[in-house]
Simulated assay, not measured.
Amino acid sequence: MRGAYLLVLLVALGGVAAVDARWRLVLAADRRAGLVAVGAGVVLFLAWDAVALASGFYSRGGADALLGVDVLPRLPVEEVVFVTFLAYLAAVVHAVASRLGAGRDEP
């Protein structure tokens, strides 16, 4: 099913956003700082991808689950959504760990 991977990524991203909103962890706590943190992660991961693509370490896959739309040559839209999910998830996990480390019972 074309686009299935993108759909799964968007659902997962929505789940992270729901956790964030429920416990006011990252974007819900401080939108500007959260966007800077997540944005920095996205830039870092996309730069990493660009270096790997230029070095020939990997290329765009041909799975039927991909939508088939490239943002840049050999960089599918799913990769951009995936690195956004990964950066947001990392920020949320860091916020949870920080709260739990500070002795709070809830994230």
Rank of each mutant, 00 (worst) to 15 (best):
G3N: 11
Y5I: 10
L9S: 00
V11E: 03
V11H: 02
L13Q: 07
G14T: 04
G15K: 09
G15S: 14
A17L: 14
R22P: 13
W23R: 00
R24C: 15
L25Y: 02
V26T: 08
V26F: 01
A28H: 01
D30H: 11
D30M: 07
D30E: 13
A33Q: 13
G34Y: 01
G34A: 09
L35Y: 15
L35F: 15
A37L: 12
G39R: 07
G41I: 06
V42Y: 06
V42Q: 03
L44R: 05
L46H: 08
L46E: 11
A47V: 14
W48P: 06
D49R: 06
A50I: 11
A50H: 12
V51F: 03
A52N: 09
L53K: 03
L53R: 03
A54Y: 02
S55N: 12
G56I: 09
F57V: 10
F57C: 06
F57A: 10
F57R: 09
S59A: 13
S59W: 13
R60V: 07
G61H: 07
D64P: 08
L66A: 04
L67Y: 02
D70H: 11
V71Q: 02
V71F: 03
L72K: 04
R74N: 11
E79T: 05
E79S: 03
E79V: 05
V80M: 10
V80R: 05
T84G: 14
T84H: 08
F85C: 01
Y88E: 05
Y88F: 10
Y88M: 06
Y88H: 06
L89Q: 04
A90K: 08
A95D: 09
A95H: 08
V96C: 02
S98R: 14
R99I: 15
G101Q: 04
A102H: 12
G103V: 07
G103N: 07
R104W: 06
E106R: 15
E106D: 14
